[in-house]
């Protein structure tokens, strides 16, 4: 039996820890929703209720539709390679017995570096004249795009940096999941004479599927919130080709001070995130193998 708490204990153990959560999370979330129905401009104390017009304007705005498309491309373009590469690296690592921690250490290192600092480094690595990326491509006789100034390539530059930073993280999750697979399953597979690919397809991939799903959701939520690398590498440009929903929100709120329109975009990001995390909770309750 847990102890029944008295009022003072509740105040101390529950109310006090909840203060920061309320003041900087829960209340602001509700206020954001409310602001999205106003035309507040931050500077003046007055505002009017404008109903749904922020949302309707948003849907009719080409910059918004472009940002929506960019966000989708960015999310798919970062999440899928991160998961696939993370899985492949983890499977390869699982076959080694020595030096595993050393190799994991190298691959995971990008995750702990600051995104701002490393994006600055990448912005020079992508430099068409002195950057090693194009020097390498040129060495192999491949085309050398102007990564950050060509609107066809800019988003791929941002995607490359994001995948580079997160793959090691995904690899650690898969490594952890692989160690939890019972060894007996492989023994059975050996008796049945299953080949390496059959083992990967019929044992590894299904048994790490909860991890894959979890990573898929977390990485998608992460992609929705990507900011630092875009800010350093392209600032949303050229011609809006790397402006995601979050970047649009940032420009509307903190460059144009159009708080109503900005919070409408924020509410949309919020709704997408809420749906994703709801799905993840529902599904992960269903498929827990261990």
């Amino acid at each position: 039996m847990d102890k029944k708490a008295n009022i003072w204990q509740l105040l101390f153990f529950v109310a006090i820890p909840l203060v920061p959560l309320l003041v900087f999370w829960i209340i602001p979330l509700f206020v954001s929703v409310w602001l999205s129905f106003t035309n507040w401009d931050y500077i003046s104390p007055d505002y009017e209720y404008v109903g749904l017009s922020n949302y309707l304007n948003m849907l009719a705005d080409e910059a918004f539709l472009q940002a929506l498309g960019n966000t989708l491309l960015f999310a798919v373009g970062t999440v899928i390679p991160t998961i696939i590469l993370g899985f492949i690296f983890a499977v390869m690592l699982s076959r080694l017995r020595r030096n595993v921690t050393f190799l994991q250490g190298l691959m995971f290192a990008p995750w702990i570096t600051p995104m701002i600092g490393m994006s600055i480094v990448w912005s020079w690595m992508f430099d068409p004249r002195v950057g090693p990326v194009n020097q390498m491509l040129g060495f192999f006789g491949l085309p050398e795009p102007h990564w950050l100034t060509d609107s066809n390539f800019a988003i791929w530059a941002v995607i490359i940096v994001t995948v580079w930073k997160n793959t090691g993280w995904a690899m650690l999750f898969f490594s952890d999941a692989l160690t939890k697979i019972p060894q007996s399953l492989f023994e059975v597979a050996d008796i049945e004479g299953a080949g390496r690919w059959a083992k990967i397809r019929h044992i590894l991939i299904p048994l790490v599927s909860p991890t894959t799903l979890f990573l898929f959701i977390i990485l998608t939520l992460d992609a929705l919130q990507a900011f630092d690398q875009i800010n350093v590498l392209t600032q949303g440009g050229p011609s809006g080709s790397t402006r995601t929903l979050l970047y649009l929100y940032y420009e509307l709120a903190f460059e144009q001070f159009n708080m109503g329109a900005a919070t409408a975009v924020a509410v949309l990001i919020l709704v997408i995130s809420a749906i994703l995390s709801f799905i993840s909770m529902k599904i992960s309750k269903k498929y827990v193998y261990y």
Partner: peptide, 15 residues
């Protein structure tokens, strides 16, 4: 739990 995965950016204007 429900606030776990929500984007912090949505709180920035009020915060």
């Amino acid at each position: 739990l429900s606030t776990y995965m929500l984007p912090a950016a949505a709180t920035y204007v009020p915060s």
